[in-house]
């Protein structure tokens, strides 16, 4: 059998395989480039970037819960100017699409970031983070279809890069927000961001996170993430989805593709196994070969009852 096709399309981007990195779990590239070959990934999604540098939240910022972690990092990053000057030149050395995750508190912040990153060159896609649960006002856009639409519409006006809206599961009806983002010009959707949770130390009778609440990720959230991907895919079958939430193995990745994701992001798994993303990419290709599937796109949404 010939080598199966693993390439997928997300907006204007062609990914060599459906495996991308989850924002905030892969640094800005240099941290991981000694450990994994970035050119074996479908895309690199770098950590959230804001207009100004952010120090993030106090510690403890990450605590373990059964089969998962709660994080409340608070979007620590050096700001967009530092990203363009210090991080982007390194990433330009690689033959892999670079997607930057954008965060802000106002529409103007996102527009500013989109303009700068589009002009910089070497950035191929923008992932609009409307749903960080760990900062005040971080979820304001994500829970409101009108605000989401307004934000995406304004960003769309200033960039021709592939736009991906990252959705929050912390809403009543995710499809409503998904549709609003797509109608406003989002080329694709990422889902899901983390689920808001907390944990308590009964010995000290204190919250375990300094921020009290944090975002839950890891295998604990996988069934929820898979359900969200399936729901959104069913409602918007032509919109490319990047599925994520507790993917630790190629088996998990295939489940997400079958549920309707065109690509998947490896996040928390990288904390446990630094080569998780490329391991999953290799495992996915092996699955295609073993099952005689000659194009990975044939799996997308192919689950049946």
């Amino acid at each position: 059998m010939t080598t199966p096709n693993t390439a997928v399309k997300i907006g204007k981007l062609t990914l060599r395989n459906p495996i991308v990195t989850g924002s905030g779990t892969f640094g800005f590239g240099p941290e991981m480039a000694n450990i994994v070959d970035l050119n074996k990934l479908g895309a690199v999604v770098v950590k959230s970037t804001s207009r100004e540098a952010r120090l993030g939240n106090p510690t403890p910022r990450i605590v373990e819960t059964p089969s998962g972690i709660l994080n409340a990092i608070g979007l620590q990053n050096s700001g967009v100017d530092n990203f363009i000057a210090e991080k982007l030149p390194f990433l330009r050395n690689y033959d892999v699409p670079i997607i930057v995750n954008l965060v802000g508190t106002e529409v103007a912040d996102y527009v500013h970031l989109a303009e700068k990153l589009t002009a910089a060159g070497g950035v191929h896609g923008l992932e609009i983070n409307i749903s960080c649960p760990n900062v005040s006002h971080g979820c304001d856009f994500a829970v409101d279809p009108v605000l989401t639409a307004e934000l995406i519409r304004e960003v769309r006006k200033v960039t021709d890069l592939t736009l991906i809206t990252k959705l929050s599961p912390n809403v009543t009806d995710m499809v409503l927000i998904a549709r609003a983002a797509v109608d406003a010009g989002s080329d694709a959707l990422s889902l899901i961001n983390t689920l808001i949770g907390t944990a308590i130390d009964i010995r000290r009778r204190k919250f375990r996170l300094a921020n009290i609440t944090g975002g839950l990720s890891g295998p604990a959230v996988k069934p929820i993430a898979l359900r969200c991907v399936w729901q959104v895919h069913r409602a918007l079958p032509n919109v490319p989805l990047i599925g994520m939430g507790g993917i630790m193995s190629a088996t998990d990745a295939v489940e997400f593709l079958l549920a309707g994701a065109t690509a998947v992001a490896i996040g928390t798994a990288t904390f446990v196994n630094p080569t998780a993303a490329t391991d999953v990419a290799a495992g996915l290709e092996a699955y295609l070969v073993e099952n005689g599937i000659n194009d990975v796109n044939a799996l997308v949404g192919a689950v049946t009852q």
């Binding site: 905030g24 779990t25 892969f26 640094g27 941290e31 991981m32 450990i35 950590k47 993030g56 510690t59 403890p60 910022r61 990450i62 972690i69 994080n71 990092i73 620590q76 990288t270 904390f271 630094p274």
Partner: peptide, 15 residues
């Protein structure tokens, strides 16, 4: 000595 969730510089948990 602090808790280091990933150990490879990407999780930002051990600041």
């Amino acid at each position: 000595e602090v808790a280091m969730p990933c150990g490879i510089g990407v999780c930002m948990g051990c600041v």
